[in-house]
Amino acid sequence: TTIHVGDLTLKYDNPKKAYEIAKKLAKKYNLTVTIKNGKITVT
């Protein structure tokens, strides 16, 4: 599972963990989490 945050690309083997991290990042920086085709993007 890949999380895209701006220019950063973070890879995680565990999709659930990746989603949790994405949610935390989104909350911290007041951003939105988008999931599309298995890719998690924080914008």
Rank of each mutant, 00 (worst) to 15 (best):
N30P: 01
T9W: 08
Y12R: 00
K39P: 01
L25C: 02
T43G: 13
I40R: 01
T9S: 11
V42K: 00
N30H: 11
K11E: 14
A22S: 02
T34C: 07
G6N: 04
K36R: 12
K17M: 14
K17D: 13
Y12W: 03
A18Q: 01
T32S: 10
K17N: 06
T2A: 07
D7G: 13
H4K: 13
K17L: 15
I21A: 14
D13P: 10
N14F: 05
T2N: 05
K17E: 13
K28R: 11
N37R: 07
V33K: 00
K36D: 13
A18N: 01
Y12H: 03
A22L: 08
K11A: 13
A22I: 07
N14P: 04
N37E: 13
E20M: 11
T2R: 07
K36H: 13
T43I: 11
E20Q: 12
D7L: 06
T41Q: 08
K39M: 15
I3A: 02
G6I: 08
K28P: 00
G6W: 08
T43Q: 12
A22Y: 03
T32D: 05
V42I: 13
L10Q: 03
A26P: 01
K24C: 11
V33F: 05
Y12F: 15
T32N: 10
L8S: 02
K27F: 07
T34E: 10
D13G: 05
P15D: 09
D7K: 13
V33P: 00
T34A: 09
Y19I: 14
P15A: 14
N37S: 09
K11C: 15
A18V: 03
K11Y: 15
Y12E: 04
K24V: 09
G38A: 07
T1K: 06
P15E: 12
I21E: 08
K36A: 14
K28A: 08
A22T: 03
K17V: 14
L31S: 03
K11R: 13
Y12Q: 03
N14Y: 06
P15T: 11
K28I: 11
K24S: 10
K16Q: 13
V42Y: 01
Y12K: 01
K36W: 05
K24E: 09
N30E: 06
D7A: 11
I40D: 01
D13W: 09
K27W: 06
H4I: 14
K23R: 12
N30A: 07
L10D: 04
K28F: 12
L31E: 01
G38V: 03
N30K: 08
T1G: 09
K11T: 15
Y19Q: 08
K36G: 13
D13Q: 06
G6F: 08
N14E: 07
V33E: 00
A26K: 03
T43N: 09
T2L: 09
H4R: 14
L25K: 01
N30W: 05
T41Y: 15
T34H: 12
E20C: 05
V33A: 03
V5E: 02
E20V: 07
T2H: 08
N30I: 03
V33R: 00
Y12P: 04
K27C: 08
T2E: 11
I35H: 05
P15V: 13
Y19V: 10
T9M: 12
I3D: 02
K36E: 14
T1E: 03
K16I: 12
A22K: 00
L8M: 06
N30Q: 09
I35L: 09
I35W: 05
T1R: 08
T41S: 10
T32K: 10
K16C: 08
T34Y: 08
K23W: 09
P15C: 11
T9A: 10
E20A: 12
V42P: 00
A18K: 00
T34M: 11
T43A: 13
Y29N: 03
G38D: 08
Y12S: 05
T41G: 03
A26Y: 02
T9F: 11
K16M: 11
T1P: 05
A18L: 03
A18G: 03
N14R: 02
T41V: 12
K17G: 04
T2F: 06
P15S: 11
K24A: 13
T34W: 04
I35T: 05
Y19P: 00
I40L: 08
T1I: 14
K11F: 15
H4A: 10
L25D: 00
T32I: 14
I35E: 06
N37L: 10
T9Y: 09
T9C: 14
N14G: 05
K36N: 13
G38F: 05
L10E: 04
K23Y: 12
A26N: 02
Y12M: 05
T1A: 12
T9K: 13
